[in-house]
Design a protein around this nucleic acid. Structure first.
Lengths: 347, 347
DNA sequence: GGGACCTGCTGAATCGATTTACCTGTTATC
DNA sequence: GATAACAGGTAAATCGATTCAGCAGGTCCC
């Protein structure tokens, strides 16, 4: 079948055309199923493609068409299940329209983000879906968004005319914290993440609003920031438990944090759902597997990815449409990691 | 600074040259710091770049240079920490040499793998680092490896002249199973993964060899395959515990499986390290966080990624070098999830 | 003062596709 | 039978860079 030719000497469309006894133009049109090319001719071209082992050169084509059919997706990291789901959602949505995904990670590092965007722009992507690293300047975003269509994930800036898709942090937080309050908890910690993200700012604000609405004390010492890793949650709960007046419940920035908190509780001889209440955010598949299973705010990461992709395709198709912001709904899923505080039950 | 121009009208090198009052050739040479271009001229070019907001077009350049400086990395999924580390290792190694990584995932699906490789080849990557999906045919690999340099991850085929980097499954398995045997375990399950992967085949073979060497029974019912997820491990241990003569220890295909097993044990009212022994494979960061912490075989995923990248760069630089296979050493890290079986301790 | 050599730059070909405008026979139409 | 319409193809320009082979002008040296 495919004849082995020297590595550097690739088969080009011209070779295919020669082998099929047609012009390069005809070969091109035949492959793109242009109706002007007759069926017999198209078959000859396809046979030539097969026998020569021709590989289409997307780079060359995109030079001429000025479309690369690649979308960049830049995330802080992909190793957490939320982002993995999001990626998968975006990818399948784009693949359906003939686009492919170029994935980049920044490790929440500003320099890496800048390099990543530069690489993507130079690689000539048709658009970038971006979850900004903490502390990204508005000016930088404004500049980047001039070079190619851009969709912002979870972050959104009212001062910036850029499409974005986020989730309903306020509502999700309300449901979670209200649930804890109804169980009788009074000292509720807010655990994990960094305040430089807008997402955390919104959730924190909302958490405080609810406590105040109920006229509960809002102790700043119960607000613990940390990396969004199990280790982050683990260390945070240790810190909280060593307080003179520790909390009886933790509302966590993400499921991953919540898992860390549960591990930390156990290391301290405590157990979530028995003598401490834990709520996560994201509802990753692992949440049901834990013992106790994790009460969490479900946020449909896959839907987030799908929506971002759709928004991007829309923007590419019609660059002049007004800015669109999508907020995905979230809901509380009550499982076993939450229970009334011990003091409450003794009464 | 950058003037806003119509989206579709990008700034080209010609524009830069015009603005700097030099030829396109000079502009190109200036940007690549060619010594034939004088410093003053180079400065003028750089200023033009800055003021016009020129973005280098890597696709156009690679058409001429026949080098894209992009390497494809195709994995089954990135959401597990092992692959995330591997990716990060490969990426930083490549970035150091001016290459960037194009990441693709296959979800262990044959069709997706084929599509992914096609996309990558069409996107004109300089090489592909591939962790094959289960059941990939040798012929397919042979064909793909003709189109561009290829490095195989963890899988290796003696019948295929392709570079690869794997880990020392045999040695790692020996250490793990010997450790369990020394603790007094006799019925040891081998849990998780699918036998269609060469990796599992090697580990299973090695596990059996050791049991036989010790003249222990090698019950095929203790060999449980499953998806490489927590859920996989969770379900497997349930199945094992319901046997009439259940095992007292599990050697797991990966840490992720082991976590699932520990969750399953707890759901069944048992506890790893107390009335059951669990060993994982990979030593992901999470392993130390669990309670009990996980005994596991450490396999340096980052090193794996780095080595794969280096091998790729070597192959690109010198295509005619003989095939090279790297086996990364592995070692057993004993933590708290392993302990002597209950029966043993009662004696 | 004439060749050798250097410095700093440019013109034009090139990479591999797409696409427009045009060409050449056939067939249909009146 | 002249002409329009059409079917099936092709030549050549084009996308945005790189790079080779000069070229003009100056310096050096015997």
């Amino acid at each position: 079948m495919t004849d082995r030719r020297p590595r550097n000497q690739k088969v080009t469309l011209q070779d295919v055309a020669d082998a099929a006894g047609v012009s390069k133009a005809t070969a091109s049109l035949a492959l793109r199923e242009n109706p002007r090319i007759s069926e017999p001719t198209r078959m000859r071209v396809l046979e030539a493609v097969e026998s020569l082992g021709y590989v289409y050169n997307q780079r060359a084509a995109s030079l001429r068409t000025r479309r690369s059919y690649t979308i960049g997706l830049i995330l802080k990291d992909v190793s957490n299940p939320f982002n993995a789901e999001l990626t998968s959602g975006a990818e399948s949505q784009l693949a359906g329209e003939g686009y492919s995904l170029l994935l980049g990670t920044t490790d929440d590092d500003m320099d890496k983000q800048a390099r990543m965007i530069k690489t993507m722009l130079e690689g000539d992507v048709d658009g970038v879906i971006l979850s900004t690293v903490t502390g990204t300047a508005l000016d930088a975003l404004r500049k980047w968004s001039q070079y190619c269509p851009m969709i912002l994930l979870t972050q959104y800036y009212s001062a910036l005319a850029v499409d974005c898709v986020g989730m309903d942090d306020v509502n999700g937080t309300e449901r979670a914290v209200e649930h804890l309050i109804q169980q009788g908890h009074r000292r509720i910690a807010f655990v994990g993440g960094y305040n430089s993200t807008l997402t955390r700012q919104r959730r924190l604000q909302s958490y405080r609003d609810i406590l105040r609405r109920h006229k509960f004390e809002c102790d700043p010492a119960l607000d613990i920031t940390s990396p969004v890793t199990r280790r982050g949650g683990y260390d945070a709960i240790h810190q909280l438990l060593s307080m003179t007046s520790p909390p009886s419940a933790a509302y966590c920035y993400s499921d991953v944090i919540a898992f860390g908190v549960m591990l930390g509780l156990r290391a301290a001889g405590r157990e979530a759902g028995q003598d401490f209440a834990v709520i996560g955010f994201d509802d990753v598949p692992e949440a049901t597997l834990w013992h106790p299973s994790l009460t969490t705010v479900s946020a449909d990461p896959r839907g987030l990815g799908e929506n971002a992709a759709q928004l991007m395709l829309r923007r590419i198709a019609e660059p002049d449409l007004p800015v669109k912001r999508i907020i995905m709904p979230s809901r509380l899923i009550v499982r076993d990691s939450t229970a009334a505080p011990v003091s409450e039950r003794l009464n």
